[in-house]
Write a protein that binds this DNA or RNA. Structure first.
Length: 212
DNA sequence: AAGAGGATGAACT
DNA sequence: GTTCATCCTCTTG
């Protein structure tokens, strides 16, 4: 079985369909080697962001700033940023150079190094609230903003993603809305959040009132 | 130079 | 259900 495991390489990340990549990342395994500690989690929930037309994307209208610059890189890098001054959020940069697409990893199922994750989160029990949110999983995996820009395609790197042969059928994928505090524009209604159906390690679905 | 606000989470009532 | 912690980035002046 070991020979069925491989690290996702450039050709996985550089494709142009970020929605497809978001769905394919479900069932893949994030591996981190941070502070000398190895932790692994299976991705169970993702969210797509796509400049220039996606209003929720930091690089909306292809705006380049010091922070968003990494999103314009060739696919296969990490984009980590600080939200609300507290939470580190981990994204995968996709598409070709100068096309700012990314996938936010929103929830994982702990696989290896659970004891390390528990210690980082100050938890005693392994339960869904350990990793069922984008800020939570970054704490559990040890991911911080200092890792923004690192390559995800090195098998000896600090962060990389593995295919272990897990197949998530389309019928097992549930799509839903992302956060929606945007103007009357369409992007708030795009169902660009993807989760593995009935997986207990996903976060709470976002509720959007379509009538307003 | 200053201020607003955000791809959230935890701790409340 | 509500509040607020906390700080970086971007916009404005």
């Amino acid at each position: 079985m070991k020979n069925n495991i491989f690290v996702l390489n450039k050709s996985f990340y550089t494709r142009l369909d970020v929605l497809q990549i978001s769905k394919e990342l479900l069932g893949k395994y994030i591996v981190t080697n941070i502070d000398g500690q190895r932790t692994v989690g299976m991705i169970v929930e993702t969210e797509a962001y796509r400049a220039p037309d996606d209003k929720a994307c930091h690089a909306y209208t292809n705006k380049r700033t010091e922070r968003t610059e990494v999103m314009f890189r060739e696919g296969g890098a990490a984009y980590v940023y600080l939200c609300y001054g507290i939470h580190h959020l981990f994204n995968v940069v996709t598409a070709e150079m100068n096309i700012a697409h990314a996938v936010l990893v929103r929830a994982i199922e702990p696989i290896e190094g659970v004891d390390i994750m528990l210690k980082r989160r100050k938890f005693t029990d392994n339960k869904p609230s350990l990793t069922n949110g984008p800020g939570k999983l970054c704490v559990a995996l040890g991911i911080k903003t200092i890792f923004s820009g690192v390559s995800l395609t090195e098998s000896l790197g600090v962060i990389y993603i593995e295919d272990r042969g897990t197949i998530i059928a389309p019928s097992q994928i549930v799509a839903g809305p992302r956060v929606g505090i945007f103007g009357a524009k369409e992007s708030r209604f795009w169902d660009w959040r993807f989760r593995i159906k009935d997986n207990p390690w996903t976060s709470k679905p976002n509720i959007v009132r379509y009538e307003d």
